[in-house]
């Protein structure tokens, strides 16, 4: 847990969760692990905000959840993406790309 990792920007946690689940269904612990792996050196995800985020996404109908046997043999709550969740992820990716592009453009402007 080095201090060089910065906290995840507001609102991007939802997008990251959707992205992770777009690959395969996972339970909360698994998502936390995955988040940790993919962002190891860069962002710090507060595990406390993971579960509220999962429930919020489920409430919105972007995730569906079911209890299934996990790799350890015990029951865990697995989340997977719904059709509207997939659509939402596409939209968020798109707007993220545009935002990043726009920010990059402004930076370029300054250096020219």
């Amino acid at each position: 847990m080095s201090s060089s990792r910065f906290p995840i920007p507001q609102g991007t946690l939802d997008m990251l969760i959707l992205q992770i689940l777009s690959l395969e269904p996972a339970h909360g612990y698994g998502i936390a692990q995955r988040l940790d792996q993919v962002s190891r050196a860069v962002v710090r995800v507060n595990q406390g905000s993971l579960y509220p985020a999962l429930h919020r996404l489920e409430q919105k109908g972007w995730l569906r959840a079911e209890w299934k046997q996990s790799e350890t043999g015990r029951d865990a709550k697995f989340y997977s993406l719904t059709a509207s969740g997939r659509k939402q992820l596409a939209a968020e990716k798109d707007s993220w790309a545009r935002l990043a592009g726009a920010v990059q453009l402004i930076f370029n402007e300054g250096t020219r």
Binding site: H27, S70, D75, A76, K77
Partner: peptide, 14 residues
């Protein structure tokens, strides 16, 4: 109770 189980699972793995 479902949330309870979910969090407990997470904690135990951790």
């Amino acid at each position: 109770s479902s949330l309870d189980r979910e969090l407990r699972y997470h904690l135990e793995r951790r």
